[in-house]
Simulated assay, not measured.
Amino acid sequence: MTKFFRTNDDSPDDEELEEEIKTMYPGFVYRVSDSPALPQVPMHIVVPFLGRLRFVRDWNGVLLLAFVVLCFMYSIFTTTFIIILPQYQDGNLSGPFALFYGFLNVMCLLTLLNVSTMNPGEVTSQDTDDYKDPAVSSYCKTCHLNRPPRGYHCVKCGHCVRRMDYHYTWLNNCVGADNHHLLLLFLVYTFLLCLTTLTLVMFHLYKFPKCISCDREAFYIKHSIWLVYIQNILCVIIGFQTFVSIVVQHLNIIMNRTILENIFLSPVYETKKRTKFQAYAELFKTKSVWLWFFPCRRKAMAVPQRGFFHP
């Protein structure tokens, strides 16, 4: 399982709390003294038109990420060739609705690509000058670098991450200060896609007539009922999980918390009161709400180093 090292010298050394956490999450939380050898650092791949992509060399993460992509491909193929195209050709489905479905698929794949390949906020030697003040920083005994107080060390990635939320194995990447907004976008677009797909499946099973223009001898048409049932099960499971994740992320964002801080029972980090809009504006680094939904936008660099998401 993913192991994290909390190497904050200022953190309380409570043995009972450590044992309680290890009991709740067996094989999960370790201190530096228990840490095994670090893996290789993430590699970077240069892809034409996509640029320099981050890639964590973890086979479990690669397989889970491949499974996520496979589920998307299955959903796109089944819904497009069994429901959308035949019903659109027969005049039972409008063009704008089909375009909306395609838009959701594109946004899901774009956010998945970005959140799984973007640097989550790695703490490097160039950042040490910004975190020399012991009152607002901590020292990582594994990286031998100063880091923000809310930074954690991830053994999968081999470095510390600023305001680390969690290492999501199914994304094969950490989520931190620089790509947290992409995780939220991916969850929102995936949930909308699941709702749209479930709506199409229900109409296909109970409302739409049998297709006239489709090739009834095609394999996916002859066995469409089973393919659609599998699609329905996937949408229910993934939709429920993404809905729960959205609720958890929303609560953490407005309360200024992360998944790891909840696991480690860290004290509440507060600097000032803020509204829900301010919380999301700081997460997306812009007050223009319409820009929040664009996954390819680079977050503004002219942001104060100390704040809710960049302490």
Rank of each mutant, 00 (worst) to 15 (best):
L109T: 03
P86G: 01
C108F: 02
Q87H: 00
K132T: 00
L291G: 14
L185R: 03
A135V: 10
R257T: 06
T169V: 11
S138I: 05
V32S: 10
P209R: 00
L171D: 11
L110S: 03
C296G: 06
M107K: 03
F308G: 09
L291M: 15
L113I: 14
T169A: 11
I230W: 03
F294H: 09
M164R: 03
K287S: 15
F97P: 07
K285H: 15
A279V: 12
P48T: 10
W290F: 15
Y25I: 10
M164N: 06
P304G: 08
L195K: 09
I237M: 09
M1Y: 05
Y131D: 00
R163P: 14
C71I: 02
V236T: 14
Q305V: 08
E19R: 12
A279L: 11
L265E: 10
L182M: 09
G158S: 08
R6F: 08
P48R: 09
A66V: 02
I253V: 08
N232Y: 09
Y229N: 07
H159T: 13
L183A: 05
Y189S: 13
V155C: 12
C214I: 03
G91P: 07
I225W: 05
D90L: 03
P311L: 08
I246V: 11
I225F: 06
V136H: 07
D178H: 02
V244F: 07
Y166W: 15
H223P: 05
F208R: 01
C214V: 08
V32F: 07
H310V: 05
K285N: 12
I253G: 14
L85T: 01
A98V: 11
H167V: 02
I225P: 07
T80F: 00
F309L: 14
K156G: 12
F77T: 03
H153E: 10
T197M: 08
F294R: 07
T23H: 13
T275Q: 06
Y101W: 07
I212D: 12
Q231T: 02
I84F: 00
P304N: 11
Y88R: 04
I238H: 08
F81H: 02
D58Y: 06
L291R: 10
M73A: 08
I221F: 04
R257Y: 05
S288A: 15
G91Y: 06
D14H: 00
N60F: 13
C211S: 12
I263R: 06
H159L: 15
S75H: 04
C194I: 14
N92Y: 15
F309T: 03
V69A: 08
P149I: 07
P267C: 11
R297I: 12
E16P: 07
S33V: 01
P134H: 07
L17F: 09
F55L: 14
I82K: 01
F243S: 10
F293D: 13
H153I: 06
N262V: 13
I230D: 11
I259H: 15
T142D: 00
F277D: 06
Y139H: 12
A279F: 05
